[in-house]
Computed example of a mutant assay.
Amino acid sequence: MSTAEIDKLRIKVDEIDLKLRDMLNERAGLVKDISRLKKVHGLPSFDPIREREMLNHIADNNEGPFETGTLQHIFKEIFKAGLELQENDHRKALLVSRRKKAEDTIVQVNQDSIGDGIQRLVAGPCSVESYEQTARVAESLKKHGLALLRGGAFKPRTSPYDFQGLGLEGLKILKRVADEYNLSVISEIVSPKDIETAEEYIDVIQIGARNMQNFELLKEAGKSNKPVLLKRGLAATIEEFMNAAEYIISSGNENIILCERGIRTYERATRNTLDISAVPILKQETHLPVLVDVTHSTGRRDLLLPTAKAALAIGADGIMAEVHPDPAVALSDAAQQMDLEQFDQFVEQLKKYGLHTNEK
């Protein structure tokens, strides 16, 4: 065969490639139309029965020279690409998506801005136990020039017999301490009916991991004029996490802070498994600020500093950690809270890695 004949055949191959390109794009357009209709009827994107029918149709009508298995493998990749196209369209439509809003959302919490490129620390006791306990922690935060106090007043616990928090009294203690030390308060609310009351006492509504898909709570938080800190669920995918945030933003509240706090895996060395890669993924996929809770993700005091360094290094907008005047007698999560001396060392070390404080 001469070189000229080879060139002619290559030209035909190139022409077929272009036809294949056009047909694949035409197919993709039809897949997107089907996807839109499925959403209208509440049907799932992936239909395994339909995929099997298409693969059988290809096998029954294959005349070679490709083997049937080879063709089916190629078409499975085409089907997969079509499904990813549908999922990308869905993400593009989300109000929390970076595709919907290119610039970063900056959430203002009194004197602090979350998501402005300055990395901050949120700290406080797991549970508010008394005024004295909370005030001692607040004093330590103030000493370091920190302004974001966390503390649990309503505590959703795995066991119904564990300490459930002081409730409204805990919120009142947080408010009193915050006023005295000029701090902003972040505290978890577990029931939609408590949000209106909580707004009088706290600056940021926290929705915890166990309530990430409490959709009525999400919608009610979306009606609030307070910022919302949303924690990732124990076994939630990033897509599910983003959709939970979408419930809030679609209800009218754009001031959302995401918080990676570890997910449940087979690993038992830590309380949860810190998905540190979730930080850059969320920063790329959404325009919302992202915090990392190093306390609940590890459940170990000895791992708080290295994981906090990792979170700062990978671009988190801030760290969340728990501190207690005397962790040994804490009413909840004693093993994972720092005492005040350890907290001092924690803050001093993180300053070297970019942590911002207002300390003079």
Rank of each mutant, 00 (worst) to 15 (best):
I281N: 01
K219N: 08
N358W: 11
K100M: 13
E51A: 13
K193W: 00
E103Y: 10
E26T: 13
G233E: 06
F343M: 06
M338G: 02
L303A: 06
Y131D: 03
L121V: 06
P327W: 08
E84M: 13
R91N: 12
V122K: 01
D47R: 04
K39F: 03
L288M: 11
C126A: 08
L94W: 14
D22A: 13
H144Y: 09
R52L: 14
L30S: 04
P192A: 07
S97M: 10
D275H: 11
G299P: 06
D14I: 07
P306E: 04
R157W: 00
P227L: 08
G69F: 09
I263P: 09
L141Q: 00
Y131S: 00
T307Y: 14
T270A: 10
P48H: 06
V347S: 01
P306G: 05
Y247P: 01
T270S: 11
Q349M: 11
H324F: 10
L121M: 09
G69N: 12
H90T: 15
S277G: 05
K223T: 07
A278Y: 12
C126Q: 00
Y247H: 15
P44I: 01
D317E: 11
R261F: 05
T70S: 13
M23F: 12
G82A: 13
I256H: 04
L234P: 02
R10W: 13
P160Q: 04
A153T: 05
D344L: 08
I281M: 13
V185S: 06
I281H: 07
D317M: 09
A311V: 10
I114L: 09
P280K: 11
V279R: 02
